[in-house]
Write a protein that binds this DNA or RNA. Structure first.
Lengths: 364, 364
DNA sequence: TTTTCCGCTGAATCGCCCT
DNA sequence: GAGGGCGATTCAGCGGAAA
C-alpha cells in the first residue's frame, strides 16, 4: 500500500483492512487524537484464540497461556507503534479495555513512550450481574488517556468538562449506562450488530474534553463507528479503520445519517488562558492608573505605581506579580486579582481595568 | 536467613526487613491471602502548590524511587514470585496501585501465573483535586484480585458481601473515603505517620469477602499495619513485613490496642438456609425492643427505635445499618453488632436478640 | 451547650510563551 | 534550547475555634 497523501481528502473516511497496515499507509504526525477499543478476546480457557482470531492448536496449557499473552503483547505493541507514528507531537490517545487486557495495554503504552495522563473508570449504571455468584459484579471498564510523550502539550478543555460536571472538576470515574435501546445497532436479523458497541455518551465526553473542533480523530478499531458518529456531530473529523466490511458499511450508513451540530452549539466554555494578554503598563499608558498612585493588597500592604508599569514598596520592586509574591512569601502570585485600586472609597481589583482594556480591544 | 518453621508460632508477627528476603524465609504454601500495597513509582518532578500557595506534602520517600520501568518491573516480579510461592494452592492475592504502576503490576501478575478474578476500583469520596486544572481529578485507585492459579478454589463470601451491599451483589467499584481524622496514625510531632495509610474500610471489605476466620493474611508492605489491625479485629491471623523499624513499631502498638471481635460477631452470612434473615422490625413486633427505646453505639451515639423498625437521631433516619454508617461516616455498617440495648445496666448488642429469634425460628 | 466558621490536608507523574 | 516572566488554579471532610 502506498503512502496516502495528507490533507482534507483523507478525512471522514473508513478504510477497510488490517489496522496496522492501514495506519502504516497514513502520513506521520497527521492525527490529533487516537481512540482505540482493541480486541481483548484472551480466551485462555477452552479454545484459545490469538488476537487476530486464528485458533491456537491445543497444546500444553502453561506454554499456551504464555504464548497467548506474548502474541497479544506483540500485536498491541505493533499497532501502538503505528498509532504513535501518525500522531502529531502534541497528540494524545485513549484506549479502553477490561481486566483481561488493560494491564498489558497500559504497560505497552508506557513502554512505547506514551505518557499516561489519567486512567478513567467507566462505571456502568446497568452492568450484567455475575450469575454464578463466584466473583464481584464486573461493573466497569477502564480507559487510559495518554499524551504522545511527556513533552506533549495535549488538549484538555478543563472548563468544558467542569461545566459538564455541574461546576466541579470532572473526576476520573464516569457513570454512563451501557449502549442499549435505539442507540444499539441491529443487524438484518434484529440482533445486535456488534458485541462491544460503546455508548455515544462515552465518546462525547472524550471528544469534548480532549479535542478541538476541526481536529482529526483516528479510530483503528472502528466497529460500528461510534467514534466517527460522535466526532461528526461535534464538528471534528475522523478516520476509521475496520477489518470487517459489513461493520464498515453499517458504520458508513450510521455516520451518513448523523447530523453535524452547527458551530454555535459546538462552542464550549473557554479557559482564561485563551484571553488576549494585557500588559499592566498599558493601564498606565492609557491613564487608567496614574504613576504614583497607590495599590493595596487584601491584607493592607501598599505599593506605588511607576511610569514603566512596575510597582515599588519600601523593600521590593518589580512587576505586579513579583511584588505580590515577595510580600506574601509565596512562590507565585496573580497580581491582577491581588492588587486593588481605590475609586469612590471602594477597593476594586485591577483586573477590572484589564477587562475594560480587553473589551476596547475587541470593539476596536 | 534460615527457613522459619511453619505453624502457629509465626502468626501475628511483624518481620522487620526486606520483603523479598523475608518471604523467601517463609515456608511454601503456608498463607491463605496476600494483601500487597507496593510502592507506586510516582515519578514526581517539581513541587506542587495549591491555589492558596500552600505546598502539597507529596510522597518523596526513597522507597518510591526507581531508576526506570525496567527496574520497577524487576522488583515487582521478584516479590510476586515469592508471594506466589508462600501462597497455598487455593490462595489468592490482592494488590493495589494507581495508574503509575498498576498496569505493570497487573501484567506481572498474569505473567507469573496468577489468574485475575476482578479488578476493583476504590472510588474516593474525597480525593485531592487537580490544582492546576490540567487533568481529571485523580479520584480512584485500582485493586486487582487474583487467584494463585486458574485452578485455585479461592474463597469468596458472596452472601456476606451481598449483605454488606444492602442485598444486591457487590460490584467492582467501591466508594470509600480516604483515611483521615482519628483513624490516621500520627507520629510524635502530630504529623501523619505514613504517607500512604489505607482506610480500614477497604481492608474490611477485602478480608470479609475473601478470607475465612482463622486464615493467615500476609502483607509484605505492612506500613502502619492496617491489614494486621483489620485481620485481628475480624478473627484472622496476619504476618506483616515492614522494612522501616519505626513503622513496624507503630504498627505493633496499633494492633495491640485493636480488639478482636467475639466469634458471634464474626459469623458472616452463610447460605440463606444456615442463617435465616431476620428483619430488625421483627424484634419490635415481638416486643423484644419497644418503640421509643434508645440504642447506643460503641462511641456513645444514641438513636431511638421507631415502630416500623427504623432508627432516628437528630440528623439521620433509616435502617440500623444506614444510621450506623451515617454516624461513622463509613460506607457501610453492620447495625447488628454496632447498636446496643440496655438490660440491667449493661449494654448488649442487638445481635443477641437476633440470635434469640433465630433459635426460636429453628425450634418452631 | 450548640451551631457556625475557618483552616488544614489528602499516593500528584499538575504551564506556556517569548526572547 | 534554555531561561525568565506572566498569571491561572481546588474539593470534601474533619477538627478546633469562635460565636
Amino acid at each position: 500500500m502506498g503512502k496516502i497523501e495528507a490533507g482534507a481528502g483523507l478525512r471522514n473516511q473508513i478504510l477497510t483492512g488490517d489496522c496496522i497496515e492501514a495506519m502504516a499507509a497514513l502520513p506521520a504526525a497527521s492525527v490529533d487524537l487516537v481512540f482505540a477499543d482493541p480486541p481483548y478476546n484472551l480466551q485462555l480457557r477452552g479454545d484459545l484464540h490469538r488476537p487476530d482470531n486464528s485458533r491456537v492448536d491445543a497444546v500444553d496449557a502453561d506454554w499456551d497461556r504464555f504464548a497467548s499473552f506474548e502474541a497479544y503483547d506483540a500485536f498491541t505493541r505493533k499497532w501502538l507503534a503505528q498509532a504513535r507514528r501518525v500522531l502529531k507531537p502534541n497528540g494524545a490517545i485513549w484506549v479502553i479495555g477490561s481486566y483481561h487486557n488493560v494491564f498489558r495495554l497500559g504497560a505497552a503504552l508506557q513502554d512505547a513512550g506514551f505518557w499516561i495522563l489519567n486512567d478513567v473508570v467507566w462505571r456502568k449504571s446497568n452492568p450484567m450481574p455475575n450469575f454464578r455468584g463466584k466473583r464481584l459484579t464486573n461493573a466497569h471498564e477502564t480507559l487510559i488517556w495518554a499524551a504522545r510523550s511527556d513533552k506533549a502539550r495535549y488538549t484538555f478543555n478543563y472548563e468544558a468538562l467542569k461545566t459538564l460536571n455541574e461546576g466541579t472538576q470532572m473526576r476520573s470515574d464516569w457513570v454512563i449506562p451501557l449502549c442499549t435501546g435505539h442507540e444499539r445497532l441491529k443487524d438484518e436479523n434484529g440482533d445486535k450488530a456488534h458485541p462491544t458497541q460503546k455508548p455515544e455518551a462515552l465518546l462525547h465526553r472524550v471528544i469534548v474534553g480532549t479535542t478541538k473542533p476541526g481536529d482529526v480523530v483516528l479510530d483503528p478499531f472502528f466497529g460500528t463507528g461510534t467514534t466517527g458518529a460522535v466526532a461528526k456531530r461535534l464538528g471534528r473529523d475522523f478516520i476509521g479503520i475496520e477489518a470487517d466490511p459489513a461493520h464498515a458499511a453499517r458504520a458508513r450508513a450510521r455516520i451518513d445519517r448523523t447530523v453535524r451540530l452547527d458551530s454555535d452549539a459546538l462552542e464550549v466554555t473557554g479557559s482564561k488562558r485563551a484571553e488576549p494578554r494585557v500588559a499592566f503598563g498599558v493601564l498606565v499608558e492609557r491613564g487608567m492608573l496614574r504613576p504614583g498612585e497607590v495599590l493595596t493588597s487584601p491584607r493592607g500592604a501598599a505599593a506605588k505605581v511607576r511610569a514603566d508599569g512596575s510597582l515599588i514598596t519600601a523593600e521590593h520592586r518589580g512587576s505586579i506579580h513579583q511584588v505580590g509574591a515577595a510580600l506574601e512569601g509565596a512562590p507565585s502570585c496573580n497580581g491582577w486579582t491581588y492588587w486593588h485600586f481605590k475609586r469612590e472609597g471602594r477597593a476594586i481589583p485591577i483586573d477590572f481595568l484589564r477587562q475594560q482594556v480587553r473589551s476596547e480591544m475587541a470593539a476596536g
